[in-house]
């Protein structure tokens, strides 16, 4: 390789870097430039008084409040459902599974992590319809079905972050409690898990971000364009990402489109904040949670 080739390589890398950064800035800039006007209380609460809306005294129309609450409930329910299962599986993988079992379990979790989200949504939808036809007329695509489906989607994140943080603990941390006569379970529950809390936490934050962001799963499992606040977990609901998708194709006036831009900015801020937070908590774990192989 001659001098010219070397220069070309470096020039190419600079062009790539600058291209990517400008594309990202262009996308985010476009959103902010077009949508910043929309960011105000009216965007969220419409014509309703914020206090009335927050105390659930009044429904909000033409505002993002129901969608934001829907997303919030979705996140709480899904992560709430996924966390215990994910933690236990992560602990099992890191502390108990060995040899062939470990290989097989790992393989299946890799598949679960790679299944496209729409396939998980489709399964949730079919299960809901199946249950409706054969068991209870009360079951149909709803907040609960969405949360269950989303919890499968984020399960791998929680499993991996737990597993990786446990595995990366130094040997002397692992052995101290055992040397003092603690049992294996005590060691896990009182030493190892607390020691890897920050890693587990960042996995949970990533899971929250994924729940807030996902559109494909929820559009099959119960999100609708107009719902108001859900009255129960068995009711359909609204959510921010679906609202953005819906507005992008259904907007009927420039004002309505503007609310789509506003919603995009809000969702972007929520996801970026969560992501930054997860990063600050534990940088290395995130990387391995995404790409554990």
């Amino acid at each position: 390789m001659n001098r010219l080739g070397e220069k070309l390589l470096i020039a190419f890398s600079w062009i790539s870097g600058i291209t990517l950064v400008s594309v990202v800035f262009f996308i985010v800039g476009h959103l902010i430039f077009k949508g910043i006007r929309a960011i105000n209380l009216k965007l969220i609460f419409g014509e309703t008084r914020p206090l009335d809306a927050l105390l659930l005294r009044k429904q909000v129309f033409h505002g993002l409040f129901p969608a934001m609450m829907g997303t919030f409930l979705l996140v709480v329910l899904s992560v709430g459902l996924a966390a215990p299962v994910g933690l236990a599986s992560g602990i099992y993988l890191a502390e108990y599974a060995q040899g062939k079992v470990r290989k097989i379990v790992n393989f299946f979790f890799d598949i679960l992590a790679t299944i496209p989200s729409i396939v998980i949504g489709l399964t949730g939808f079919s299960v809901a319809v199946f249950l409706h036809q054969h068991y209870s007329k009360q079951i149909y695509p709803c907040l609960l079905i969405s949360s269950l489906s989303l919890s499968f989607l984020v399960l791998p994140y929680i499993i991996r972050s737990t597993q990786v943080s446990l595995e990366s603990l130094p040997l002397n941390t692992r052995l101290t409690a055992l040397a003092l006569g603690g049992t294996r379970v005590q060691n896990i529950l009182y030493v190892l898990v607390p020691q890897s809390l920050s890693g587990i936490l960042s996995g949970l934050i990533l899971a929250i971000g994924r729940c807030a962001e996902d559109t494909a799963v929820i559009m099959l499992t119960g999100v609708v364009a107009t719902a108001g606040l859900p009255r129960s977990v068995l009711a359909p609901y609204e959510a921010l990402p679906f609202y953005i998708y819906y507005i992008s194709s259904e907007y009927s006036s420039p004002e309505e489109l503007l609310t789509g831009y506003g919603a995009s900015i809000i969702l972007l801020i929520i996801c970026m904040t969560l992501f930054l937070f997860a990063f600050i908590v534990k940088r290395r774990i995130i990387w391995q949670t995404f790409y554990h192989l």
Binding site: L56, R57, K58, Q59, V224, A225, T226, A227, G228, L229, P230, R231, A235, P236, Y237
Partner: peptide, 9 residues
């Protein structure tokens, strides 16, 4: 506000 009406396409 006790009534919830959901509309899907």
């Amino acid at each position: 506000p006790e009534i919830q009406i959901t509309i899907a396409g």
